[in-house]
Write a protein that binds this DNA or RNA. Structure first.
Length: 770
DNA sequence: ACCGTATTCAGCGCG
DNA sequence: TGAATACGGT
């Protein structure tokens, strides 16, 4: 066996071999953090530590999978598959399936994802007849989530004068009531949301000494990745688990903490030494990823933050090119400049598309880049958006599975009680809920036997037909495997028919998605993934059942669904999504005040510092070349607004930057006086007359975009043949209205008659030359 | 129950 | 701007 320690530099080797006692590794960007973690685990196993006793907690499922693969490769044995590796949520969900009874949960509890959680909150706000404008679902969700993370129970919440004061002044005095109702409803539904997975794990360890003992001895060695992004609950859990022998190794980079907004606590990393005075702290400062210039730029930027652990990242790599800064007149032009630059760099360096990434602050910025890339025929892939398992059609199908596995799952029941439409309408559902409330039974029980006289014969029939169907599915749970049962449900419940009836492109797409879900289930059922060591009390089954499939489906995210079609494409994503990734060529775009840094961050020093860390993360994704861009004018919420360049641009030393004056595709040349100092401190905004930009935009906008001008894009008249991107070719029957509101009635073959607003319809005139 | 229309709202998103 | 949802008429 070769000595794996030879693959490491001195700093890394020290961090890997210090296996006993508390260790903190501060790992600068690109310094081989993952390497240290994987080698450390491999080293532990080489030393004879049983993999069953090693717990490694990662930030994403993907990270866990990749790390596991690397360790297996490193050790050349699959022994390391027995390491407990995963996210906090997935590891402790598994623990709770076994131990949850202690807390009053059945082992088949449902996991509510953010969507489900918000649906429940929404329903509660409605039931309590509160104003849904004052009580916005996302706001309530955040409040509840942070209360849970801070170990504040609904009772604490209601009794705390301080919190009540806050909520009153925010005009939301009844938030505590919502929180209370929410907790009750989740518990009665035998459901845990993401915060509950952590909260209940904490309660388990806190209130059940035998459980604490068991897991303290099970997990002799604990490693936590991305420690800067852990929240208070995660911190407490780790602390309790590690309390016995303190073989705890946390790895992170305070400079890359970018999730404070959702509860991550940078204090966890900053105060590690206080919690463990005897802790060994190591820094990894040699960067293997980026050029000297990029490392220097990143260092200079992060220097402006006060709250940080000192470290100086350096590299042996080449000096590299200067950072190019593009100044664009509009966001549309920004797209063209960036796409043009990618085109050029790709040519000059013979790099594949996948070497390029465009990173932006907000998802809404992707559009101009998509358009420009499409125009230049550069293939791209957008990350983010709605993930596969979040799609409505998928969630509808999954709700059937949820209900038959756990018939207390009220959200699932409500979701499918009338999908596909079976004549159980709003009135009936409300009646059921009232009866359930009065009799103290679950909604499902009520539906199964509503009691005499509540419903007329027709409604009663519909309800019992539904109940019978669901019961019959439940009965098959133990008999059919996941795929057989899923397919059966799709047919028997009429989901398949419902989906296939919709012939619109969106409908076909939905149908395909559900088909894809079935494929995934089939794959799962025929080749069950060899899970890690079974927990004591976990049951092993021969064939993968639907219940197995559903166990952690809520814990999957987009990153876990592999994209087979994704090969050589430019990546478009938010900076947050880029965390942990690297690309030879990186474009950071939209570097404007109020956008990056975001407008919400400007009032608070710590928020601004988080934005700066975000920028730091963005810069350090680049291996060879970095490009920055900003627009002087940008469409935001429908109107053109003037933008100032980001303060972050000033924080990079000028000598590291260059400003190509050359505009990519044909466009008016800029004045020589447009140098950077002029840009950084814009005096009076020169021109802000919409008319001035119209021409620029007009010539750039591809046919797909909505032009700013009032003139319609096409002249249409009855009898004309036109083409629509979705509906295909059709014939204009009538034109009504004036100007912006001009409406056309078009007959599309195979689809029928459609009324379209000319302004939006993206119609193309079909010309018949000859 | 369902459809078209009006209105509203807009941050980043791990699990 | 445009998506998502609420509303209101049939």
């Amino acid at each position: 066996m070769k000595d794996i320690l030879n693959d490491l530099n001195e700093e890394q080797r020290v961090a890997v071999t210090a296996t006993e006692g508390p260790v903190m590794v501060i790992a600068g960007a690109g310094s081989g953090k993952t390497r240290v973690l994987t080698y450390r685990i491999a080293h532990l196993i080489n030393k004879g530590i049983d993999p069953f006793h090693v717990l490694a907690l990662t930030f994403t499922n993907k990270a866990a999978r990749e790390m596991k693969d690397r360790i297996i490769k490193l050790l050349g044995s699959s022994e390391s598959a027995n390491v407990w590796m995963g996210t906090f949520h997935s590891v402790f969900a598994r623990v709770l399936r076994v131990e949850g009874q202690k807390l009053g949960y059945p082992s088949n509890f449902t996991i509510y994802d953010t969507d489900d959680t918000k649906r429940v909150i929404k329903a509660i706000i409605k039931d309590l007849q509160l104003d849904d404008k004052a009580y916005q679902v996302s706001y309530v969700y955040h409040r509840i989530s942070s209360a849970k993370t801070s170990l504040i129970t609904p009772e604490d919440y209601i009794q705390s004068p301080e919190i009540q004061e806050q909520d009153k002044s925010a005009n939301k005095p009844l938030l505590g009531m919502i929180y209370q109702a929410y907790r009750k409803r989740c518990f009665q539904s035998a459901a845990m949301d993401f915060d509950d997975l952590l909260l209940n794990t904490y309660k388990l360890l806190r209130d059940f000494p035998e459980a604490l003992y068991k897991y303290q001895h099970k997990f002799e060695y604990i490693l936590v990745d991305e420690y800067q992004d852990t929240n208070y609950l995660q911190y407490l859990i780790v602390k309790m688990l590690a309390a016995n022998n303190e073989n705890l190794c946390v790895v992170g980079d305070d400079a890359q903490s970018i999730y404070a907004f959702r509860g991550a606590n940078i204090q966890n990393i900053l105060s590690f030494r206080k919690d463990y005075p005897e802790a060994q702290v190591y820094k990894l400062e040699q960067n293997y990823r980026s050029t000297k210039l990029i490392v220097e730029a990143a260092n200079q930027v992060i220097k402006n933050n006060k709250n940080r652990i000192f470290k100086e990242v350096w590299t042996h790599n080449d000096q590299g090119h200067k950072i190019q800064v593009f100044r664009a007149i509009t966001d549309g032009e920004e797209g063209m400049l960036v796409a043009g630059s990618i085109f050029e760099q790709r040519m000059n360096t013979h790099s594949p598309n996948e070497a390029f990434a465009i990173l932006y602050r907000t998802n809404a910025q992707s559009r101009s880049f998509e358009e420009s890339l499409r125009k230049l025929n550069i293939p791209y892939r957008i990350f983010g958006g709605i993930s596969f398992y979040q799609r409505k059609e998928i969630k509808d199908v999954l709700a059937y599975f949820r209900l038959i596995i756990n018939n207390k799952d009220e959200d699932a029941l409500l979701r499918i009680i009338n999908y596909p439409a079976r004549g159980i309408g709003k009135t009936t559902i409300e009646k059921l809920q009232v009866i359930a409330e009065e009799t103290g039974r679950s909604l499902w029980d009520t539906l199964e036997s509503p009691g005499r006289g509540h419903f007329n014969e027709g409604t009663f029939q519909k309800l019992s037909a539904f109940a019978t169907m669901i019961r019959s599915f439940s009965a098959m749970l133990g008999k059919k495997d996941a795929f057989e049962l899923a397919r059966h449900i799709m047919h028997a419940a009429g989901i398949k028919r419902e989906l296939e009836e919709d012939k619109t492109p969106e409908g076909v797409n939905r149908s395909e998605n559900v088909e894809e879900l079935l494929n995934a289930i089939k794959e799962f059922a025929t080749a069950p993934t060899p899970g890690p060591s079974p927990l004591e009390g976990e049951e092993l089954e021969l064939r993968a059942s639907l219940a197995d499939f559903m166990k952690d489906i809520a814990l999957l995210t987009d990153a876990d669904v592999e994209d087979k079609t994704n090969t050589d494409k430019v990546s478009l994503m938010t900076v947050h999504q880029a965390k942990g990734l690297e690309f030879p060529f990186v474009y950071i775009v939209g570097l404007e005040e109020n956008l990056f840094p975001s407008i919400q961050s400007l009032n608070d020093r710590s928020d601004l510092e988080e934005e700066r860390r975000l920028f730091y993360v963005a810069i350090t994704r680049a291996q060879q070349r970095l490009f920055l861009s900003f627009a002087e004018n940008r469409y935001r919420w429908g109107n053109l607004t003037f933008c100032e360049p980001s303060r972050f641009l000033e924080e990079i030393p000028q000598e590291l930057l260059e400003f190509p004056r050359k505009a990519s595709p044909p466009r008016p040349t800029f004045h020589p006086k447009d140098n950077f100092s002029d840009i950084i401190t814009p005096k009076a905004p020169k021109i802000n007359i919409p008319g001035h930009y119209k021409k620029v935009i007009g010539t750039q906008s591809p046919a797909g975009s909505v032009p700013a001008s009032q003139e319609p894009m096409v002249e249409v008249f009855p009898g004309q043949e036109v083409e629509h991107p979705q509906f295909g070719k059709g014939k204009v029957l009538a034109v009504d209205g004036q100007g912006a509101n001009k409406k056309v009635t078009v007959f599309f073959a195979g689809i029928g008659q459609k009324q379209l607003l000319l302004k939006f319809a993206r119609l193309k005139v079909v010309t018949h030359d000859t």
